[in-house]
Amino acid sequence: MKKHILLTNDDGFDAIGLKALIEALSPIAKLTIVAPAKNKSACGHSLTLDRPLKLDKVDDDFRPDLVISGINIGANMGEDITYSGTAAGAMEAVLQGVPSIAISQVCRNKCLDIKDGWDFALAKQTIAKLASKILNNEFPLDERKLLNVNIPPIKPDECEGIKITKAGYREYGNDTHRHLNPRGEEYYWIGLHPLIWQESSDKSCDFEAIKANYVSITPIMLDLTSYKDINTLENWINK
Rank of each mutant, 00 (worst) to 15 (best):
T126H: 02
N137W: 01
E143L: 04
P194C: 07
H45T: 05
A209M: 04
G44P: 11
F139I: 02
L49P: 05
K19N: 13
K38P: 00
E199G: 14
D116V: 01
L21P: 10
I127S: 04
K228R: 10
V215C: 06
K19Y: 06
L66W: 12
N137G: 00
L7G: 02
P64E: 11
I151A: 00
D113P: 04
L147E: 07
L112P: 03
M77D: 00
S200H: 07
T82V: 03
I71E: 01
F207T: 03
Y227N: 06
Q105E: 02
W236N: 04
K110G: 04
L18S: 04
A42V: 11
I33R: 04
K203S: 15
I164N: 05
I28Y: 03
T86G: 08
G89R: 00
P140M: 01
D10R: 01
M77W: 01
K166D: 15
Y169I: 15
K163Q: 05
F13Q: 10
L21E: 13
T86I: 01
D50T: 04
M91T: 01
I101L: 15
D80K: 11
G117D: 09
A15Q: 00
S100V: 07
E160M: 13
G44D: 14
I127G: 00
A123D: 05
M1F: 08
N235W: 12
V149R: 00
A29S: 15
D50M: 05
E79W: 06
E143K: 14
I101K: 09
P153E: 09
L31E: 06
L146N: 03
I237A: 13
L95C: 13
Y172C: 12
E143A: 08
C43M: 08
K163D: 03
G17R: 00
D65Y: 09
K19W: 03
P64S: 05
T176E: 11
N39R: 09
I134V: 08
I22A: 06
I28Q: 12
D56E: 12
G173T: 10
K163H: 05
A93C: 10
I237E: 08
P156K: 11
E23G: 07
N174C: 14
P152M: 10
P36I: 07
E160F: 15
E199V: 11
L6E: 09
K203I: 06
E143Y: 05
L192W: 15
K211M: 10
C159D: 12
Y214H: 04
Q105V: 02
T232A: 13
K155L: 13
K155Q: 07
K228M: 10
I68V: 12
V58I: 00
L53D: 13
L180K: 11
I22C: 04
Y172A: 15
N137Y: 01
L6A: 12
P52A: 13
K203V: 02
W189Y: 15
D175I: 09
A37I: 08
A121R: 14
M221T: 07
D50F: 01
H4D: 12
H4F: 07
